[in-house]
Design a protein around this nucleic acid. Structure first.
Length: 348
DNA sequence: TACCCGTGGCT
DNA sequence: TAGCCAAGGGT
């Protein structure tokens, strides 16, 4: 059940209010025949997964400056890409980003697949990202459903089924509205609407191009939609991190395994994180515990990290990890929890 | 299916 | 302050 008039209202709004974003080719430029670079569209969509536009901007600029094409990225060192991603979170995205770039370079001649199925087969590309790249880069009328679209649909149709149960229903609603004309602009428009007008709190209904059709507006229930299943509370885990400095200034660091939390990232050697962590010093040394813990909250638990420091001589080999020369070490290459531990150690 | 996986800004 | 929230995918 298509509704071209509804889509047209939104496209009209988008033509007047589209945000200017570094990875976006705006409606005017698109109308003039300028096509977005699929590499930049894909890169931005991966970075934007569960991540806000302001957080993504500097990373997008850094990546596209350093690796202007997908083939450049495919040729990068793993450690360089992980370091460049440090701080952005969800590090599996970075590992899959590199995998995907290498697949595109090696198996597709450096050209992104131009259909939904081909895109979906790429590492790190799921239904949302495949749809977004297909629509935005290739003007395929794919239905794009992210958190914004779910919210817009739940309100537009006053759907009170809680997420994630409501996902298939909301997806069907979104599909029914997706137009054949200007699918790239439409995909960006409906997400912009959710991001700027139909926001989670205090939606700006007075400015909404779909207000007259909105069931939640009619019923006054905008603020309670979409319904969500109650969340579990996060447990607190404890851990110990060992920050070892060699007398020449080198730091003792350890590459974390590819799978699991902070997979593939550099970090300080440490204990397991749990209810009662056992000491696990990576080198023989005289330890000094800082009087302040590093606190950090991950997706599903809180962490309180005790930081212990030591200074060791040149000739003492570590049992775990490797010394990184001071000139090769940049705390910005660390995931945030590790950088917090570093900041604490430096400030005393 | 349910769980795993970061981060920073906002209220 | 503690919880909520954001352009999800993998397993």
């Amino acid at each position: 059940m298509r509704d071209p008039a509804r889509a047209a209202d939104l496209l009209d709004w988008y033509d007047r209010h589209a945000r200017d974003l570094p990875w976006r080719v705006g409606p005017r430029a698109r109308a003039a025949g300028i096509r977005p670079d699929p590499y930049r569209v894909w890169l931005s969509e991966i970075m934007l997964q569960q991540t806000t536009v302001p957080a993504v901007k500097p990373y997008f600029e850094a990546f596209t400056t350093r690796w202007p094409t997908v083939s450049d990225l495919a040729a990068a060192e793993d450690a360089d890409v992980m370091a460049a991603w440090a701080g952005l979170g969800y590090y599996a995205r970075a590992r899959n980003l590199l995998k995907c770039a290498r697949v595109v370079a090696a198996e597709h001649g450096g050209v992104f697949p131009q259909g939904l199925e081909g895109l979906l087969s790429l590492p790190g590309v799921g239904p949302y990202t495949a749809g977004a790249v297909a629509a935005i880069a290739f003007d395929i009328p794919a239905t794009v459903v992210d958190g914004n679209v779910e919210r817009v649909m739940a309100r537009l149709h006053a759907e009170h089924t809680p997420l994630p149960q409501a996902k298939p229903i909301l997806t069907e609603m979104a599909a029914a509205l997706t137009p054949q004309e200007r699918p790239g602009c439409y995909a960006q428009a409906v997400m912009d609407l959710g991001a700027t007008i139909c926001s989670p709190r205090n939606p700006a209904c007075g400015l909404c191009p779909w207000r007259s059709a909105c069931a939640a507006w009619e019923a006054g229930t905008m603020a309670e939609l979409p319904k969500k299943a109650p969340k579990k509370r996060k447990p607190t885990r404890l851990g110990i991190a060992y920050l070892v400095r060699r007398v020449d200034g080198a730091w003792l660091l350890e590459r974390r395994p590819d799978k699991g939390l902070l997979g593939g990232m550099l970090g300080w050697p440490g204990s397991e994180w749990g209810e009662a962590p056992e000491e696990a010093p990576p080198i023989a040394a005289e330890w000094k515990a800082l009087n302040t813990e590093a606190r950090h909250t991950f997706t599903h638990f809180h962490l309180r990290l005790t930081v212990k420091t030591a200074l060791v001589p040149m000739d003492r080999p570590p049992e775990r990890g490797e010394f990184v020369e001071a000139e090769d070490f940049d705390p910005k290459d660390l995931p945030t929890v590790m950088r917090k531990a570093y900041d604490l150690a430096r400030s005393g």
